[in-house]
Design a protein around this nucleic acid. Structure first.
Length: 297
DNA sequence: ACAAGGATCAGATTTCCTTC
DNA sequence: GAAGGAAATCTGATCCTTGT
């Protein structure tokens, strides 16, 4: 495996492992858990082996092991204990750490072994809900704090997307739609983050709904082609980082799509948290999370 | 604005000691 | 040995100064 050299600041480690920077310093001082290089001006710089070790330590710490005890173990013993716990119970945290490492090191093999490991006792949907969703939330945070770069996000998100498509193709063979209502999924203009809506698409197919996905950056005016063909349509859209103002989007939707009747429009995504839903027309609904939507199906 | 590291503090936990 | 309490230690946070 080719490791890409990458250095992290103490803040990066805090973001990636959840351990406060100050606590990391204290642990280094008190227990010698890490020995980072220093810049000429004495600033700590960590490499990915440091990150790996601290992820393991953080994992053990979360499982009730005292730092004093962990610090007495050498690296191999730490690895062994992490594996032991992993074998016993919840792999989710361990998997989360593995996914982070896989992302940072562009390690597709690690991603696959982690995924296969999870699939041994979970369905694809369980993996997605229990591991991928928390992980994606995590990525959002790392992204906001400048710990990771777009290249990391693109790499790992695409690997996850590949898994969705794989299972989508699988369930399309068996899960035929049982209702007339057509769910139309699309992303607003200039919105490029499509993993959320692709997964929504997966869930709709999984639940035997009639759904089509129109891809990213769709001009609203194009939707009229569908309205001529279908009576009962429900639109779904997803705002992650789109620069489009959501209230403007809604006005446009009303103007261009709701000429003859008020079509239902379901909105998802991170960006909706900033929006006040009070003045939404009644046929437009906002969903804060996936389960809320799945329960309404 | 951020990083480093020293001093100190409170709360939790462990260890030690006495008593039964 | 079990129980209970005092003492010691561990742990992470806060506050602070210094330096880049």
């Amino acid at each position: 495996m080719e490791l890409i050299k990458q250095n992290f600041s103490i803040k990066d480690l805090e973001n990636l492992t959840g351990i406060k920077a100050h606590t990391i310093r204290i642990w280094e001082k008190r227990y010698n858990i890490l020995n980072p290089d220093r810049t000429a001006t004495n600033i700590r710089t960590y490499d990915s082996s440091n990150l790996q070790k601290l992820l393991n330590i953080s994992f053990l710490n979360e499982h009730g092991y005292k730092i004093s005890r962990i610090s007495k173990l050498n690296d191999e013993e730490i690895n062994k204990m992490v594996k032991n716990i992993n074998a016993k119970a919840s792999n989710e945290n361990r998997a989360l750490n593995a996914l982070k490492l896989s992302m940072i090191n562009f390690d597709e093999e690690l991603f696959n072994t982690t995924y296969e490991g999870l699939r041994k006792d979970k369905s694809f949907r369980e993996v997605f809900h229990q591991v991928f969703l928390p992980f994606l939330g995590n990525i959002g945070m790392l992204w906001q704090t400048y710990t990771i770069k777009p290249i990391h996000e693109h790499f790992i998100v695409d690997l996850i997307k590949q898994k969705i498509y794989l299972h989508l193709a699988e369930i399309k063979k068996t899960n035929k739609p049982t209702r007339d209502r057509l769910y139309v999924l699309f992303l607003p203009e200039n919105e490029i983050h499509d993993i959320g809506i692709i997964y929504l698409y997966y869930e709709l197919i999984y639940n035997h709904r009639n759904a089509i996905y129109l891809g990213p950056s769709l001009p609203l005016s194009d939707l009229s082609y569908l309205m001529e063909r279908h009576e009962d349509i429900c639109f779904l859209s997803y705002f992650t980082t789109s620069p489009v103002n959501i209230n403007t989007f809604i006005k446009e939707f009303e103007k261009q799509v709701c000429r003859k009747k008020n079509y239902e429009l379901l909105l998802f995504g991170q960006k909706l948290k900033e929006v006040d839903t009070q003045n939404f027309p009644p046929f437009i609904k906002k969903f804060d999370n996936l389960n809320q939507f799945l329960l309404s199906l």
